[in-house]
Design a protein around this nucleic acid. Structure first.
Lengths: 194, 194
DNA sequence: GTCTATATCAGGATAGAC
DNA sequence: GTCTATCCTGATATAGAC
């Protein structure tokens, strides 16, 4: 990918975190990226194209740091710890995580009214759910796959819900993390009972 | 409130459910309400005024049907059933529920970037969390209050997460309801263990 | 109170030079 | 590839007749 494109997408991610998808102005994006509006339209088809590619960009970035988290650890984590780490990864108050979470929330909210965003979103969600289901399976190998899938859907939706509350100022990050840990506890306890 | 005003607000609620807060066009609202744009501006100060009053209108309506659900039942429900009913109330594919859920999602998403909305949102969320905590307490009277509060925060955030997935086309309503029931199961099982 | 007609403007998108 | 300048659509808001 061309460096300019990356530069613009990074700016878009920052801007979306600050103003939201709804508040993203092409002119403002140009200013943030330090380029002209004309150049934006040279690299992207239209405003929706920018949005779609930014979603992709953010997803890639999230995958990279999700993978990194596992790879970097000198000794591999226990399954239970890895599950928790993976879910808590998105509940951290750092610039990149904030950008990713905010953008994700915006895209989710926009997809309610914009058909064009739904496919990408559904695909990304599915990958995410399956990853969590696999981790759950490592913790509870005897649990039936459908139960694992359901628990994964709940935990990821739970994370999105908590994340929105955090970003909208209704929940402090530490508390959100505590609640997320509690959800993992509850789901694992329920799986054990099956 | 003047009948015309109500008529316009109802149309606005329908339209917000269909196009979102950001997609609300005054001209389209006029058409939907069967009046002229001029009349809209006769009754409301500006676009923001329409939005604010519509959200108020929707809130009132939600309170009415939440209360109604409990009052109407000939015989009072068992605590467990009442808890489930209360949570599943927002996961129904009827026009009014869709309108309310959509508006709530829009509000939550907008609050990420708009300080002005946060207080109202926080207040409404608190009431909602406390209501669920009370219901949980009726099902598990021996559980410690902080555990009830945490479970209530999780369940309401879970509901918001599932609702968004449903509205954004990533989850069918029946499946969302199943998942919500599963979450209640898991939380109650966890509370029993305390 | 309600409508029609229109002023005004923001912002997405393009043309053309370099 | 990148910039400057500009067009043009679509949407808010107002004026004035009825």
């Amino acid at each position: 990918m061309a460096p300019r494109t990356t530069q613009i997408l990074e700016a878009a991610a920052r801007l979306i975190a600050r103003r939201g998808v709804r508040g993203l102005r092409v002119e403002e994006l140009a200013a943030e990226a330090g380029v002209s509006t004309g150049l934006i339209y040279y690299h992207f088809k239209d405003r929706t194209g920018i949005l779609r590619q930014t979603l992709e960009f953010i997803n890639d970035r999230a995958e990279r740091y999700t993978a990194g988290q596992v790879a970097e650890g000198a000794e591999p984590l226990a399954p239970r710890a890895e599950l928790e780490e993976t879910l808590l990864l998105e509940l951290q108050d750092t610039p990149v995580i904030r950008e990713n979470s905010t953008a994700w929330g915006e895209l989710r909210a926009s997809a309610v009214f914009d058909e064009a965003l739904r496919d990408d979103l559904a695909r990304a969600t599915l990958v995410w759910v399956q990853e969590v289901a696999a981790l759950l399976g490592q913790v509870q190998p005897t649990a039936p796959p459908p139960a694992l899938a359901a628990a994964a859907e709940r935990l990821t939706a739970q994370l999105e819900g908590l994340s929105m509350r955090w970003l909208s100022g209704g929940l402090r990050i530490d508390h959100a993390r505590d609640l997320m840990r509690g959800a993992v506890d509850a789901e694992l306890a329920a799986l054990r009972g099956k």
